[in-house]
Structures are given as structure tokens and as C-alpha cells.
Design a binder for these strands. Structure first.
Lengths: 114, 114
DNA sequence: ATAGTCACTTTCCTAAAGGGAACCGATAGT
DNA sequence: ACTATCGGTTCCCTTTAGGAAAGTGACTAT
């Protein structure tokens, strides 16, 4: 019984960590876009993520990079462009994105019924 | 091409809706506990969700009920107790919880490495 | 010289989330 | 009369997320 309690405590910590990292208004959308296009510039991401401001986008990208989910590459172009791409490790996020997407679609229908 | 763009816009809306509903510090933990025990009283939930205050717990539960994910039942006991239980529909959340839990566990390991 | 592009940063602000502590009403036990 | 339990609510406060708008620096094109 105590064993099970410990396991569920670990589970709670894992869930809390995950949602602390991925929660918020933009992270999943950014990862979804990067997942789709594989590599995008700052401006691309800004245009795809309708409504985001450069300040906020910049912060989200930094946090994702800090957590090893994306890479940032400065290109030798003029004017400078910067490419963002998901890491191999970011594939671990895909099940979460897909589950969230699936639930979100169903839920939009469900709430429409009311 | 335009078709694909429309599909991805719908996807983004679905993801945004889902994270708007389930984001925040406590919702997934509450759903995880209810998923495990099936029916819990207010006080049980308060004790399991370490650190939560009654005000915040109350708000989370109301939002989950509004979204048809849990039911609230007042019991005929003394003093009054209130039971919360996941709805059948709440099963749709399980894949999200599991994916988040799985990623969270892996990520805790990953970050420990650094 | 001027205007434009890109990837930001800076400053200022507001709204929302969340926490602390106390309180409440109904009821029960001693 | 006093204390406790349960499921909250109320009030106040701090922290954080996020948005608006402007600016910056390196470079290019006209």
C-alpha cells in the first residue's frame, strides 16, 4: 500500500513537472508547428502563432530550448535569420500533443451541444 | 493546400481549447486522483492535492463540473459530505493524462542528467 | 540619406491565477 | 457551553503570464 502511495506521488510530480513546462497559452502550438514543418524561422513562427508578440514568442522559445526540446540556429543570411527545429527528444512530446488534440476536438463538439 | 491549412487551424483551436481548460496547476492532478479512486470527498481531494487551498480546489472542481468532466453529489451524512466522481466522458481525458505522465517521468530523468 | 527586413529587447501595463487566513452554517459529540 | 467536522466562502494580497508599443543593431536596397 505504501508502495502504491509512493508510485502515485511520483506520478503527481511527473504530471506537475510536465504541465509546468508545457502549460501556458503557446507552447503546444509552437511545438505543433515545429513538428509539422520541422524547421521554421522566428518570423514564420510569429505568423503561424496568430496573436503572439515577439517578446512572448522569444520567451517560449528560450524555455523550450532550455528544456532540450528545440534547437536554435543562427543562419548566415542577410539580414540574419534564425532557425528553430525540434530535437529528436521532442518526439516524446508527440503523444501528448496528439492526445490533447484529440480530446480538444471532441470537447469542442461536446460543448457545442449544450 | 488550403484544405490542409484549414485542418491545421482547427487543430490549433482544439489544442488551445484543451489547454485552456486543463492548464493550470491543479486540474490534471485532480483528474488523476479521481481517475484512481473513482469517488472522493472534498476533504480527500484537499489532502491528496498537497498545498491546495479550499478556495482554489473549489474553483477547479466547479470548472471541471461545468465542462462535464466530473459530477458533484451532496451526501445525506452528518456533517454533510460531498462526493466528486469522474463522468463517463472524463475517460476521454485518460490518454492525455497518461501521455503527460509518461513524458513527465522521462523528462524528470532527462533534466537530472544535466 | 532613407526606408525596410529580421530577430529580437525594453518598458509599461493589465488581468488572471493562486496563496493565507479567517470566517460561516449546519450538525454532532462531551 | 464548548469544541470539532465538513464544505465551502470571503477578503486581501502577491506573483506570474501575457499584451501593446516602441526601440535596437546589423544589414540591404534604392
Amino acid at each position: 500500500m505504501d508502495i502504491n502511495k509512493d508510485i502515485s506521488k511520483e506520478d503527481i510530480l511527473a504530471i506537475k513537472d510536465a504541465i509546468e513546462l508545457l502549460g501556458g497559452k503557446w507552447k503546444f502550438c509552437i511545438l505543433y508547428h515545429l513538428n509539422t514543418y520541422q524547421t521554421m524561422r522566428f518570423k514564420d513562427l510569429q505568423e503561424m502563432s496568430v496573436g503572439i508578440t515577439p517578446k512572448v514568442l522569444s520567451k517560449q522559445l528560450q524555455e523550450l530550448e532550455d528544456n532540450l526540446l528545440i534547437t536554435r540556429t543562427v543562419n548566415n543570411t542577410k539580414p540574419v535569420t534564425v532557425s528553430y527545429a525540434p530535437t529528436k527528444y521532442a518526439e516524446e512530446i508527440n503523444p501528448v500533443i496528439n492526445a490533447l488534440l484529440s480530446f480538444g476536438s471532441k470537447h469542442r463538439e461536446k460543448i457545442k451541444e449544450k
